[in-house]
Write a protein that binds this DNA or RNA. Sequence first.
DNA 1: TCTCATAGTCTTCTTTCTAGACTAGATCGC
DNA 2: GCGATCTAGTCTAGAAAGAAGACTATGAGA
Lengths: 123, 123
Amino acid sequence: MPKETDEPKQQPGAGCPIRGVLDRIGDQWSLLTLEALEGEKKRFNELMREIGDISKQMLSKTLKHLEQDGFVRRTVYPEVPPRVEYELTELGRSFLIPMKTLIGWAEPNHAAITIARQRHEDA
Amino acid sequence: MPKETDEPKQQPGAGCPIRGVLDRIGDQWSLLTLEALEGEKKRFNELMREIGDISKQMLSKTLKHLEQDGFVRRTVYPEVPPRVEYELTELGRSFLIPMKTLIGWAEPNHAAITIARQRHEDA
DNA sequence: TCTCATAGTCTTCTTTCTAGACTAGATCGC
DNA sequence: GCGATCTAGTCTAGAAAGAAGACTATGAGA
C-alpha cells in the first residue's frame, strides 16, 4: 500500500503560508520595526533611535519591504528639511496580535533560555 | 561633555525580552526547524529534506543554537552509519503555541500580502 | 557664510551564507 | 579482498548580505 499522504512533494516554500510570510517578516528587524510602530506613527530617525542598533540602510530596506507588503504606510510631507512618517496599516496592526502572543511567551521564558545557554557554555 | 538627558539609555536589546528571544530564534531557519520538529523526532537528513532549501551548514548551526538555548534535545546513537535524532524539549514544545498563533494569522493574511506586493510591483 | 537638520543613497569593508568536496567506519555487492 | 555506500556532519572557497560612514539637496538660524 502506497503512502496515503501522496503529497505533491511541495516545493520548499510553495503552498506553505508560513513560508510566504517568513520570507518577508522572518527577520528580527521587521519584527522590531513593527513593534516600534505600535501605537503611533514615527519618522525615520525616530525609528533609528528607538531600535538603536539598526543601520540606516537596513531600516530603509526593511521599511520598503514592509510598505510593499502592506504592513506600513509611508507619508511624505514636502517640507524642508524633509519629513516622512511611517504608520501601521490595518494589516500591520492585525499582525501585532500574533506578535503579542510571541512577546507574551518570551517574557516568562526568556530566563529559561538564558539559563540553558549558560549551562551549555559551562559544559 | 556628557549627554544631559541622563536617561537609563537602555542598550538596544538589554532589558527587552523580545530582543533576547529574537536574537536567537528571530530568523526563518529556526522557526522552520522548530516547525519541522513538531510531532516527532527527526534525523539530520530528514530535516534537510523536509525544510528543503536549507544548507547543511545552516541546519547544523541552527540546530546547535536551538540545542544550546534549550529548545531541542540531540541524541546520538553510536552506530554505523551514525544516527542522530533531534526532538523538541518541553521549552521547545511550549514555543509552538505562540508560533501556531503566527501561522494561524499567516493563513488568512497570506493572500493580502501577495496582493499588496503585486500592486506595488505594478505601480 | 557656516552650520545644522532630515531621509535617504552610495561606497567600502566585514561578516555571513551557500554549494560542494571531504571524513570515518561498518556493511553490501562482486 | 576491493571498492562503493550509508550518515552526520566539517571544511573551504566563492557569493551575497550587512554595517559604518561619507555624501546629497534645501531651507533655517547664528
